[in-house]
Design a protein around this nucleic acid. Structure first.
Length: 755
DNA sequence: GATCGATGATTTTTT
DNA sequence: ATCATCGATC
């Protein structure tokens, strides 16, 4: 243990060895926050605290896993495990164990955002509320906010002033009834119900609060009021709360996070000890100076100054591009340069504000044949085929789950159309029976939907009942059940009928899900179906990040929180994007965006590239963009800036003939850029060089043309499909006889024309 | 009840 | 520009 403490700096050591009682550790970016948390746990265990008496909250499952691993290496594995997980996973554990006290359906399903929206649509249709007047997304957000404030539907109705509030409150109440009927909880419910469980059932609260002598919370700045209630309840017996966070990294205000939980820690937990960690072990001096300078512009913060003993390092690179395509081409270039300079592709991470930005970068990397992984976005579990397959499993696990039922009752086609299903569900609700049971009541079913449809419905529910029996008796494991379902419904056949184009790749995704089920089965020593579904419901984007050196990673800044990378490329540093247009109205909004920018900067260990474009496509149309105001807050000595030269344009005629490549953009280094960029600048009025023609020129001048027969050293022979200029490169899409479609860059991979 | 084509919204960030 | 939803038609 002494060894563990010796490697800490005095501040870290003081925090780790803090006496019992409430403790707040204000930990700047890269200040060894995770190390402090893990060492604190190790220190507690070393001092004789029983592992079962320790409860720790992390932001992602991945962080939980890593932290457990690190504690294990510190104190040796093989002890009784301590509790560590996300708020949602931990609350789920409480509810599975003691939810009966709240009268919860013991088989309750977890509804994610998509399920919520579908259910809400149903509810609105039933309540005859026009979704045009009350957008589903808005209603969903309003309800979520109420839940996070611990506001009941009744309280919401009482507080309603305007008509919209009344409608929202009505929908909230109806939505809650629908959730109950479906035997489901949404994400917010997991925490809300856990809080209710502890607040309304004192014997349950006393049991858990008595058991957990030490509660530790990571990323405390991003807890909301509900989570605060939970923490308070769990720490109510012993009062030992160890909270770690950074107010400058609070980036979840939009989903109810309250920095106040941290800023007013003293009031919530009187007598708290506060420790501050300001020495940064992650980034170079220049990166840190830039981050410090930017965040200093925020008014609502406690204020701290990170410092480092490591050298200044390279200056940050700030570059302007014509559009998103040019920016993406430059990212390819940076990756190549960094790899040539000794980094691996896995050392480079591209960050951006919105998921939509990943597309261009992804395309550019794919064309350049650079391995990459997009974290989040349209991730695996959101694909239609995966969701459909999962819906079958969910329906097997929970017969009441109407949303899953609706998803798949006619997929593949069973001649059960909208009208039939509607009549059926209505009649079932009227009879107050779950769909499956109602379908067995021939006397009720046939008059409701007619003889023919009744037969088809019964056939479907017989199938589900069979799966349920087999899964329930343990005759089939989760992966076996999944494979059985896919086979029984001939899902491959259906995918092919539905869309032959994509059938193969969609089938691969289904196969991938079966693989995941196998992995789960082996990893969890034969876990139940419910456990499998829970695990899937609660995976976060960040949990899917693969370790390794092979691939450039692309993710949103939000997803990157808590991570670090040698090289960070921050794309789209433009006003209206970062800060985002929807947050630019209020000071609080801009300050949260500035924290987001700060988080992005402080992810970088060695090098940071901040890129922005002069125009970007939005809804298909080009829009002029100004550089982000945050770029102007970076002091000049720590960065180099290159802006587009908006003066003289090279004559187009020069490149019409011959094989002149697209000219590299010409840059100017502004001499007075920081001063000039501080305030809002007028929109650029001078004409900006058009590039679309240049792309075409490259194609025309190229030695390759569509239809041409070509040969490649490793892919063999094929036919050219498309020739296009991308950035400074020529990209030839070839249909190889053996290798299929590939994007080839002749500059790197020799491609020989055969005719 | 299914299929095709037109229309309109969509992009902020996530457990 | 792309995707989901809606309406008309078979």
């Amino acid at each position: 243990m002494d060894d563990l403490l010796r490697v800490l700096n005095p501040d870290q050591r003081a925090a780790v060895t803090a006496p019992d009682g409430p403790v707040l550790v204000v930990a700047g970016a890269g200040s060894g926050k995770t190390r402090v948390l893990t060492t604190r746990i190790a220190w507690l265990l070393d001092r004789g605290v029983h592992p079962g008496a320790v409860l720790a909250f992390t932001f992602t499952n991945k962080a939980a896993k890593e932290m457990r691993g690190r504690v294990d290496t510190q104190v040796g594995a093989g002890r009784a495990p301590f509790w560590i997980g996300t708020f949602h996973a931990t609350c789920l554990k409480l509810l599975r164990a003691d939810g009966a006290a709240l009268g919860l359906n013991p088989r309750f399903a977890i509804y994610d955002t998509d399920d919520q929206k579908r259910l809400l649509k149903q509810v609105m249709a039933a309540e005859k509320i026009d979704p045009k007047q009350f957008p589903v997304n808005v209603v969903r957000t309003v309800i979520s906010r109420w839940k996070n404030d611990d506001t009941t539907p009744e309280a919401a109705a009482e507080k309603a002033i305007a008509h919209v509030d009344e409608v929202h409150a009505t929908l909230y109440a109806a939505y809650e009834r629908a959730l109950t009927r479906c035997g489901a909880l949404d994400f917010d419910d997991l925490i809300l119900r856990a809080v209710h469980l502890l607040e309304r059932h004192d014997e349950v609260r006393a049991r858990y609060a008595g058991r957990f002598q030490h509660v530790l919370v990571d990323e405390f700045q991003d807890t909301n009021s509900l989570q605060m209630l939970l923490i308070k309840a769990l720490a109510s017996e012993h009062g030992n709360l160890f909270a770690v966070g950074d107010d400058d990294q609070s980036i979840y205000g939009w989903r109810g996070a309250r920095v106040e939980n941290m800023l007013e820690f003293d009031q919530y937990f009187p007598g708290a000890h506060t420790f501050r960690l300001e020495q940064n072990y992650r980034s170079t001096g220049n990166i840190l100076a830039a981050a410090n300078a930017v965040i200093a512009n925020n008014r609502r913060r406690k204020g701290k100054n990170l410092w480092t003993e490591s050298g200044v390092g390279d200056p940050l690179t700030i570059e302007e591009f014509l559009d998103g395509d040019d920016e993406a081409a430059r990212i390819v270039e940076i990756v190549r340069a960094e790899c040539a300079a000794g980094h691996t592709r896995g050392d480079v991470t591209v960050l951006y504000r919105t998921n939509a930005q990943s597309r261009l970068v992804e395309d550019a990397l794919r064309r350049a044949q650079i391995a990459h992984q997009v974290v989040g976005s349209v991730q695996f579990y959101e694909r239609k085929e995966v969701r459909d397959t999962l819906a079958y499993l969910k329906l097997v696990a929970n017969p009441a789950d109407e949303i899953s039922l609706l998803r798949i009752i006619n997929v593949p086609k069973r001649r059960l159309g909208e009208t039939t299903v509607e009549r059926f569900l209505e009649a079932a609700a009227y009879a107050d029976l779950p769909p499956g049971e109602f379908s067995a009541r021939t006397d009720l079913l046939e008059p409701a939907v007619g003889l023919a449809a009744a037969g088809r419905l019964r056939a479907f529910f017989d199938l589900v009942a069979r799966w349920r029996t087999e899964a329930g008796t343990g005759a089939l494991s989760v992966p076996e059940l999944l494979a059985r379902i896919v086979k029984d419904i001939d899902y491959p056949g259906w995918l092919h009928t539905d869309d032959p184009e994509s059938a193969e790749s969609r089938l691969e995704n289904v196969a991938e899900l079966v693989n995941a089920a196998h992995a789960f089965h082996e990893g969890s020593d034969g876990g139940t179906l419910a456990q499998f579904l829970e695990q899937i419901a609660l995976v976060a984007d960040a949990d899917t990040i693969q370790d390794g050196e092979g691939a450039v990673r692309l993710m949103t800044i939000h997803t990157a929180k808590g991570l670090e990378f040698p090289v960070v490329i921050l794309a789209g540093c433009e006003d209206e994007l970062l800060p985002h247009v929807t947050s630019s109205e209020t000071e609080a909004g801009v300050e949260e965006e500035r924290r987001l920018f700060y988080v992005a900067l402080t992810r970088a260990r060695q090098r940071a590239y901040l890129l922005h474009a002069a125009r970007r496509r939005r809804f298909g149309a080009h829009e002029d963009c100004l550089p982000s105001r945050f770029l102007g807050e970076i002091p000049d000595p720590v960065c180099t800036r290159r802006e587009l030269n908006r003066g003289w344009q090279p004559p187009i005629a020069q490149t019409l003939f011959g094989s002149a490549p697209r000219p590299a953009p010409t840059w100017v280094t502004p001499s007075n850029s920081p001063a000039r960029m501080l305030g809002p600048r007028p929109k650029p009025t001078r004409p900006v060089r058009q590039t679309s023609e240049w792309h075409d020129d490259v194609a025309q001048a190229a030695p390759f043309y569509p239809g041409q027969h070509v040969s490649h050293s490793s892919f063999g022979s094929g036919v050219v499909l498309r020739v296009e200029g991308v950035g400074d490169d020529l990209v030839v899409t070839v249909d190889f006889r053996d290798a299929g479609h590939k994007h080839i860059i002749p500059r790197f991979a020799p491609l020989v024309g055969l005719d």
